[in-house]
Simulated scan of single mutants.
Amino acid sequence: MNNTELKAKAIQIRMDLLRMIHGAKTGHTGGSLSNTDILTALYYRIMNIDPARPKWEDRDRFIASKGHSVESLWCILADLGFFSKEELATFSQFGTRLIGHPNNKVPGIEMNTGALGHGLAISVGMALAAKRDGKAYRVFCLMGDGEQAEGSVWEAAMAGAHYGLDNLVGFVDRNRLQISGSTEEVMGLDPLDEKWAAFGWNVVSLDGNDIDALVAALERVPAAIGKPTLIMANTVKGKGISFAENIPHWHHHVPSDEELARALTELKEAAERLARLEGQVR
């Protein structure tokens, strides 16, 4: 996909995840909206994957360490054909595979995650295995910014740099909000980019809701040979929905019928503006 197609896809994924959460009457809405652009760039442009062969040995790996924001991931995997889109209607229902965190019984999921602080360590192990086995696959790990208060994140960061894992890319979804409020009030993190750099990572800070910036950065990986890359993705929690953006309450707020209708209208209008802009450019 080109960048315009990626932007349109991200709008579609936001619409899908909102419908899914509304139908299930549960979910982590704000964080899924903030990470949608990151996952869209990865899955539709950057990662070397094959939905028909989810266990292909040379596939790139993705670990959703902030596993509670799984809704965007479920919608993307269904859209790509890892499983049927009809299964999205079972999200968080009794007996479903599509629970509220990544579940490796589902094709396309590498590990069960959601206990914060573990995903990067898993990713370090996978990237180290690739190096030692002479494999070319890469490992991508998405973390939350509230998750950065977990000490195990920093143990893994130290190991990733020590072993020179330039096949490893970490993301921090830096929306500055967690379930109990502002990250800087709950546990101050800034200057977070400097901390990662001090641990030996190549740090790229960008607008994590900007598809152009994400693609440009990811296509340069590895930008520093012998160093893992950390993308500080400065995002907006609730991105794409005007009345949800930067509102802590939307961490796991389920949209009402009226809120869903308003949100879908805003997203349809965004898609129409994108299409008009593309027409003008052409």
Results as ranks from 00 to 15, higher is better:
I49L: 07
E86N: 13
T26Q: 13
K66R: 12
T26I: 04
L80P: 11
H68F: 03
D60P: 12
I38H: 06
T26D: 12
N103I: 05
L73I: 02
G27W: 06
K105N: 14
D60C: 14
Y44F: 15
P51S: 11
G31L: 05
I63V: 15
C75L: 05
L42T: 08
F94G: 02
G67N: 10
L88R: 09
H68C: 06
I63R: 08
K105A: 15
I109H: 08
R45G: 04
Q93W: 07
I63T: 14
I63F: 10
I49A: 04
S32F: 02
T26R: 11
S92N: 08
V70C: 02
D37K: 11
I49E: 10
N35K: 10
T96S: 15
E110N: 14
G108D: 13
F62Q: 00
G95D: 04
G30L: 01
A89R: 03
L88E: 02
L33D: 09
T29I: 09
R59V: 11
G31F: 03
L42V: 10
V106K: 02
T90D: 14
F83V: 05
G81M: 08
E110D: 15
R61N: 12
W74I: 02
S92H: 10
K85L: 05
T36R: 03
E57L: 10
A78M: 11
R97M: 08
E57K: 14
D79N: 03
E87A: 09
G108N: 09
L88M: 04
V70N: 01
R45A: 07
W56L: 11
I76W: 00
I46H: 05
L77C: 06
E86Y: 07
I38R: 04
N35T: 14
N104E: 12
G27S: 11
H28L: 10
D58N: 15
T26F: 10
K66Q: 13
L39S: 11
N103F: 02
L80D: 10
G67D: 07
F82L: 01
K85Y: 00
N104D: 15
